[in-house]
Design a protein around this nucleic acid. Structure first.
Lengths: 132, 132
DNA sequence: CGGGATCCTCGTTGATACTG
DNA sequence: CAGTATCAACGAGGATCCCG
């Protein structure tokens, strides 16, 4: 079938939403180099609530990106690991993260420039005090 | 400076949010092969409201990813175009889109499997009808 | 045509508390 | 430890109207 994220109702747009999601990027990143426990993920992805962690992991599991393994020990222990499909997503997402980190400085500069330029608003030559 | 998206307050996490954003991916994708007018973008990115289009374009402009050119004609005409910085983001985002489109089928299958497996819930061997 | 400004409303998210 | 459940609330996002 033909998928097109530019189309309103297309499932691929929803999928794109999910994989570009704030937490997804970080969780998949945290799982990139091997299996991790629930609590490890919670610690690695700083600031995530258990709710969002659980919820996001469930989505990833449902979409076949993550395997969930429950060890019947006490206390309970649950391991999460990327599937083959999940590993194929690792590179694109890592590239995105790398872009953000690499170009953060440039973006900060651009913002400063933009914010500084707005108050004056007169970017072009002699735009001010022309009409009385 | 050292940027780390895994840290709670780090600006790079916010930046990652923005570039992974639903509309950003599509807008940058639409601008990937050249300058586009506002109305063209609105038509290309199916289902976006003018508010979100304007808002997202402003963010992209502020972050130095997009150039905005106003032609003083009547009726007005505004062109948007990726900057050098913006073009550097094109590939990572396109890769993400490609991943979504390419693996959509696999994800659909995984979902079907997951949804079908949940009702029974008994994945392991002989888990059912054990306790009366 | 390209927006700016408003209003309003869902949904996502985060705290909190309880369970196995 | 690893969730599930519930609740409150903030904010993203859509619809609408108006202006240059």
């Amino acid at each position: 079938m033909l998928w097109d994220p530019f189309e309103r109702g297309c499932p691929s747009r929803l999928l794109l939403d999910r994989i570009g999601d704030r937490w997804t990027v970080l969780i998949v990143g945290a799982l990139a180099d091997g299996s991790r426990r629930f609590s490890e993920l919670a610690r690695t992805v700083d600031g995530i609530s258990q709710k969002m962690l659980t919820q996001t992991l469930r989505s990833l599991e449902r979409d076949g990106l993550v395997d969930r393994t429950v060890h019947p020990t006490v206390p309970p222990r649950v391991d999460y690991e990327l599937t083959e499909l999940g590993r194929s997503l690792t590179e694109p997402l890592a590239a995105l993260s790398r872009w953000a980190v690499t170009h953060m400085d440039a973006v900060v500069d651009a913002r400063d420039l933009y914010d500084a330029g707005l108050p004056g608003a007169a970017v072009g030559p002699q735009a001010e005090r022309s009409a009385p």
